[in-house]
Lab assay of single mutants.
Amino acid sequence: TTVHIGNVTYHFDNPEEAVKWAKEMAEKLGLRIEIHGDTIRVE
């Protein structure tokens, strides 16, 4: 599972961890997340 924040990509072996981490980052940055299969974007 990959999480994209701007130009930076993070890789997670556990999809649930990826979603949890992306949600925390989105809250901190005042952004929202979009999930497309195994790709998560924070925008």
Results as ranks from 00 to 15, higher is better:
40 I>K: 00
21 W>Q: 02
27 E>I: 07
9 T>F: 09
7 N>V: 09
2 T>F: 11
38 D>I: 04
41 R>Y: 15
28 K>V: 09
5 I>F: 07
29 L>W: 07
3 V>F: 02
26 A>R: 02
34 E>P: 02
37 G>K: 06
1 T>D: 02
37 G>A: 05
28 K>L: 14
14 N>G: 06
27 E>L: 09
16 E>G: 08
29 L>N: 11
7 N>M: 10
34 E>D: 06
20 K>H: 10
4 H>M: 14
38 D>C: 04
32 R>Y: 08
42 V>T: 04
27 E>W: 06
23 K>Q: 14
25 M>V: 12
17 E>Q: 10
10 Y>T: 05
30 G>A: 06
19 V>S: 06
38 D>V: 05
30 G>Q: 08
5 I>H: 05
37 G>Q: 06
39 T>M: 08
16 E>T: 11
9 T>R: 09
15 P>A: 14
38 D>K: 05
22 A>L: 02
18 A>V: 01
29 L>A: 07
41 R>I: 15
42 V>R: 00
33 I>L: 14
40 I>Y: 01
23 K>A: 10
11 H>K: 12
23 K>W: 11
43 E>A: 08
25 M>D: 01
7 N>Q: 12
2 T>I: 12
10 Y>K: 08
13 D>K: 09
1 T>H: 06
43 E>H: 11
14 N>W: 06
1 T>E: 02
30 G>N: 14
43 E>M: 10
42 V>K: 01
12 F>L: 01
11 H>Y: 14
15 P>C: 04
43 E>Q: 11
30 G>E: 07
14 N>F: 08
30 G>W: 04
28 K>I: 11
1 T>Y: 10
15 P>L: 14
1 T>P: 05
22 A>K: 00
10 Y>F: 10
9 T>Y: 08
8 V>F: 13
16 E>N: 12
35 I>T: 06
14 N>S: 12
40 I>H: 01
32 R>V: 15
20 K>A: 14
18 A>W: 01
6 G>W: 09
3 V>E: 00
24 E>Y: 13
9 T>E: 12
26 A>Y: 03
15 P>F: 15
32 R>K: 15
7 N>R: 10
21 W>M: 04
9 T>N: 07
6 G>K: 09
5 I>P: 00
10 Y>H: 07
35 I>R: 03
37 G>M: 04
35 I>H: 07
14 N>L: 08
12 F>N: 00
7 N>K: 13
40 I>R: 00
20 K>F: 08
1 T>Q: 06
25 M>K: 05
31 L>V: 10
7 N>S: 13
12 F>M: 02
35 I>Q: 07
28 K>M: 13
22 A>I: 03
25 M>P: 00
1 T>W: 11
31 L>R: 04
15 P>E: 10
16 E>Y: 11
25 M>S: 04
30 G>C: 04
36 H>W: 11
20 K>Q: 13
21 W>H: 03
37 G>N: 06
40 I>D: 01
37 G>L: 04
14 N>I: 10
31 L>H: 13
33 I>D: 03
19 V>M: 15
15 P>K: 15
2 T>R: 08
9 T>G: 06
28 K>G: 07
39 T>N: 07
5 I>C: 04
4 H>Y: 14
20 K>N: 12
32 R>M: 15
1 T>V: 14
29 L>G: 09
42 V>N: 01
43 E>G: 15
39 T>F: 06
13 D>M: 11
6 G>Q: 12
30 G>V: 04
42 V>H: 01
1 T>F: 08
24 E>A: 11
4 H>V: 15
28 K>R: 12
37 G>Y: 04
11 H>T: 10
11 H>D: 06
3 V>A: 02
38 D>G: 07
30 G>P: 03
41 R>C: 04
35 I>F: 12
33 I>P: 04
29 L>P: 03
33 I>N: 02
3 V>C: 02
3 V>L: 03
2 T>L: 11
9 T>L: 11
11 H>N: 07
42 V>A: 04
3 V>S: 00
35 I>D: 04
6 G>C: 03
8 V>P: 00
34 E>T: 13
21 W>S: 01
32 R>T: 15
14 N>K: 10
22 A>Y: 01
41 R>S: 08
34 E>L: 05
31 L>W: 15
29 L>C: 05
36 H>D: 15
19 V>K: 08
21 W>Y: 09
34 E>H: 09
9 T>I: 14
17 E>P: 03
31 L>N: 06
10 Y>A: 05
26 A>S: 07
29 L>Y: 11
24 E>S: 10
38 D>H: 11
12 F>Q: 00
10 Y>Q: 05
5 I>A: 03
31 L>G: 15
26 A>Q: 03
30 G>S: 06
28 K>F: 08
36 H>E: 15
8 V>H: 14
42 V>Q: 01
29 L>E: 10
10 Y>P: 00
39 T>S: 10
40 I>A: 01
22 A>E: 00
2 T>G: 03
39 T>D: 08
17 E>R: 07
10 Y>D: 01
12 F>R: 00
1 T>G: 06
29 L>F: 09
23 K>C: 04
15 P>N: 13
21 W>R: 02
6 G>I: 08
27 E>P: 01
34 E>M: 05
41 R>A: 05
27 E>F: 08
31 L>Q: 08
17 E>M: 10
18 A>H: 00
7 N>P: 06
31 L>I: 05
31 L>K: 06
43 E>L: 14
29 L>Q: 07
40 I>M: 02
9 T>V: 14
17 E>L: 12
43 E>K: 06
28 K>N: 09
7 N>C: 08
37 G>R: 04
4 H>W: 14
3 V>P: 00
8 V>R: 14
10 Y>E: 04
35 I>L: 06
32 R>P: 14
34 E>I: 08
36 H>I: 15
17 E>D: 11
35 I>V: 11
13 D>R: 07
7 N>W: 08
26 A>E: 04
5 I>Q: 02
23 K>M: 14
30 G>M: 06
29 L>H: 13
11 H>C: 05
6 G>V: 07
18 A>S: 02
22 A>F: 02
39 T>H: 11
5 I>M: 10
34 E>S: 09
23 K>V: 12
42 V>C: 03
22 A>G: 04
15 P>Q: 14
36 H>Q: 14
9 T>D: 08
6 G>S: 08
27 E>M: 07
27 E>G: 07
11 H>L: 10
2 T>Q: 09
38 D>S: 13
37 G>D: 06
36 H>Y: 14
40 I>N: 01
27 E>Y: 07
25 M>F: 07
8 V>N: 14
5 I>G: 01
2 T>S: 09
38 D>A: 09
24 E>M: 13
16 E>P: 05
20 K>C: 03
34 E>G: 03
21 W>A: 03
25 M>R: 04
29 L>V: 05
17 E>F: 08
31 L>F: 15
25 M>G: 01
20 K>I: 11
14 N>T: 10
13 D>W: 09
26 A>L: 02
8 V>L: 13
4 H>D: 05
39 T>A: 07
20 K>Y: 08
12 F>S: 00
3 V>G: 01
36 H>N: 12
18 A>G: 08
11 H>Q: 10
9 T>P: 06
24 E>H: 11
16 E>R: 09
16 E>W: 10
37 G>E: 06
18 A>F: 02
26 A>C: 03
26 A>V: 02
3 V>W: 01
9 T>W: 08
31 L>M: 15
4 H>F: 14
29 L>S: 07
31 L>P: 01
35 I>K: 05
17 E>Y: 11
42 V>I: 14
6 G>L: 15
11 H>V: 10
3 V>I: 04
30 G>T: 03
9 T>K: 13
5 I>T: 03
16 E>M: 11
43 E>W: 13
16 E>H: 12
35 I>W: 08
40 I>S: 01
13 D>C: 06
4 H>G: 04
19 V>G: 05
22 A>P: 00
36 H>C: 04
19 V>I: 15
20 K>P: 03
8 V>C: 05
12 F>A: 01
1 T>R: 05
7 N>F: 10
22 A>C: 03
13 D>I: 10
24 E>W: 13
15 P>W: 15
41 R>N: 08
14 N>Q: 08
12 F>C: 02
30 G>K: 03
14 N>R: 09
41 R>Q: 06
25 M>H: 05
8 V>G: 09
19 V>A: 07
2 T>Y: 11
36 H>P: 01
40 I>Q: 01
19 V>L: 15
6 G>M: 13
37 G>T: 04
2 T>K: 13
6 G>T: 05
33 I>E: 03
18 A>R: 00
14 N>V: 09
11 H>W: 14
3 V>Q: 00
24 E>R: 08
43 E>R: 05
24 E>N: 08
19 V>C: 10
32 R>C: 05
37 G>C: 03
15 P>S: 14
13 D>Y: 09
40 I>G: 01
9 T>M: 12
18 A>K: 00
39 T>K: 06
39 T>V: 14
21 W>T: 02
3 V>H: 00
24 E>D: 10
17 E>W: 07
36 H>F: 14
19 V>D: 03
15 P>V: 12
41 R>L: 14
